[in-house]
Amino acid sequence: MNIEIKDLRFTYPTGLEALKGISLSVNAGEQVAIVGQNGAGKTTLVRHFNGLLRPSAGSVWIGDWDTSKYSVAKLASRVGYVFQNPDEQLFSRDVLTEVAFGPKNLGYEKDKVDALVKRALSLTELNDQTETNPYDLSPTWRKMVALASIIAMDTPIVIFDEPTTGQDAVNVARIANVIAELKKEGKTVITITHDIDFCAENFERVIALSKGEVLLDGPAREVLGQEEILAQTYVDPPQLTRLGKMLGLKATVINQEEFLNALK
C-alpha cells in the first residue's frame, strides 16, 4: 500500500509552523528511516499517516484513502503507530490483553486474533510474559509490548517513533530483527530515529527533514554520505562512514563489512 504526500503543511494551534510543504511517496514494502534534528517535524509528519494530525493544507493518501476523510479508528486498519514513549500507549492489566486489544478492535475473528497475537508475542520474545502487568516490566520490555501490540494489528504500514531510544545493544538487535521480519512479510516500515548507525544498518531509504522541509531523500548510502548537508539538520553520518571518509576511502561505506572490504 503506497503513501502519497502532496505539499503537506501543518501549523499547530500555537502558531508553530511544523511542516512547510512536504511532498513524498513511499512504495509498498519500502523500509524508510526519517532523520533530523529535534523539532524538525519528524513526529508531526508521521502522525499525519494515521490521522492523529490533519493537514492544515495539502494531502496525505494511504492507498486510496485521503486521511482527512477517514477516522483514526478506520486508519488504524492500514497504519500501525508505535509511540516514542510506550507509557503513552499501554493501558491494559496484562500483556496478553494489551496485545490482543488492537486486532480485536479491528473486528477480526477469534482464531485470527489468536494467531496474530501469538506471532506478535513470539517476534518480540514476550511469549512467557502474557500474564504480566506491562507496568511491572522494565522500560525496555514495555517498549517490546508496545511493538507487539501494533504488530498484532497486521497493518500493511508500520511506523516506529524512535524505537531504539534507551535500549541496550541486545534489545536494539531484537528491534532490528522485528523490522527485518516485517520486511520479509512485505510490510512498509517507516522509522524515526536519531541512531544513525542503526539507520545505516537496517534501512534502504533515508529521508532527512530540516525545519519542516525535506532536506534529502534517497538510498541510504547516498543520503548518509552527504556530510555537509546532513549537518544542517544536526545529523552526523554513521561512525564508519565518517571513518571511511577520514581515511580517504573512495566509496561511501555504511557498515562494517563494506568498511573492511574497502580496506583490503
Binding site: Q84, T165, I196, T233, Y234
Partner: peptide, 8 residues
C-alpha cells in the same frame, strides 16, 4: 541524551 540529536 536518549532522545536528542547528535548536536544536542
Amino acid at each position: 541524551t536518549s532522545q536528542m540529536d547528535p548536536i544536542g
